[in-house]
Write a protein that binds this DNA or RNA. Sequence first.
DNA 1: GATTTCACCGATAGTACTATCGGTGAAAAT
DNA 2: ATTTTCACCGATAGTACTATCGGTGAAATC
Lengths: 212, 212
Amino acid sequence: MSTSLSRSEAKDLTRRKLIRAALAILDEEGEAGLTTVKIAKAAGIAQSSFYVHFKDMRHLLRVLAEEGGERLRGSMREARRRARESPDDLERHRDTFRIPLEAICRHPELLRIQLRARHDPSSSFRDFATQKAAAYREHHAADLAALGYTADDERDRRRLEMIAEAVDAATNALAMGHLEGRYPDLEECADILTALSRGALRLLRSTSGGPA
Amino acid sequence: MSTSLSRSEAKDLTRRKLIRAALAILDEEGEAGLTTVKIAKAAGIAQSSFYVHFKDMRHLLRVLAEEGGERLRGSMREARRRARESPDDLERHRDTFRIPLEAICRHPELLRIQLRARHDPSSSFRDFATQKAAAYREHHAADLAALGYTADDERDRRRLEMIAEAVDAATNALAMGHLEGRYPDLEECADILTALSRGALRLLRSTSGGPA
DNA sequence: GATTTCACCGATAGTACTATCGGTGAAAAT
DNA sequence: ATTTTCACCGATAGTACTATCGGTGAAATC
């Protein structure tokens, strides 16, 4: 505005505008609505200038995946860090759900895009989303193991993974319900998830022991 | 083959071929890959002949939604009927999960298409999928209520709905995991879901009573 | 057996998008 | 002060798809 930017600063600003515009369109209209025409228009430049910043559409999609992945990683690191700080096991278990729920609510568009991509065979983000979901599932299973639900044999290990996958899906569903306004209280969502999880873990506890 | 079909029979056959081809492409490539060119080619007719059977693409999509809805309704009716026949409450509760899991495995493409449509703002099936999911959630909540988990006040009614939504999401996730080969035993999936559900319902039982 | 109907065909106009090209002016380098 | 660089522009060729049109032959009707 007042201070004229240097050329590289101006270019970087335009690039960020493009990414910002693309993420908004991706969230609002889905991958099918993501065209160079719309992105450039939303960013306030000519359609052809899109190619000054990205080699082609694929390039932008790769960058968006990296961008989204970085934000997701950041939220997860924070979640893990805070969950580890909880005083007792019960509170830690509850935090295992409350913190991801809060992370989702901070960047709901990332969850929406991920859920969409995961089931769409034409999506450029499909592999990325599947990979992220698997990583989160394993991380969750490891968290449960850290709470004392040791999985000694193959059967229990598989069950722990199934519980993690089932509870993750439930977490996403309740988070979406919260975002849609159906479940206003996030604490109540965490309560339900904790209860679900503890119920399922009873299956393991009975065979291999666990915390109170 | 040997007997030449009447004109109307032949037309109806071609129409069914088109719907069949469209469903296959929808499952394999998603809504983005669904074009009149591909559908007609897969059905073995010229692209322009597509319009002999459907006014336009929207018309076909409407018909596909009705077609899929009818199959889904059929599976659900069957599931409800069989679940009601179970001898005791525990077995009925378990059937509440095993039967939907089996229904999903009979028509996995319908679940895939529905999950995809539900989160895609550009999908023609989005409203349809959302509606179906809400209907199933309410049906599930009613099933739980029938098992004795009476929800007297508003809080418990909301919690019952949250549990139904969470468990439905978990059911879909485990069914997808089964279809992807990660969880070969469908009975084990039903076990996990039953345990999840019973754990969550403990929240209600403690305040308003319920079965053993 | 003559006429009508119509499912299907090939050709094509119209639409939306991608990606490239040469031109322009202001910032940067000399 | 002059030259170079380059972010951005308008124009446009190329691609993929939708939907319409007139033509054709075999089934249906008379």
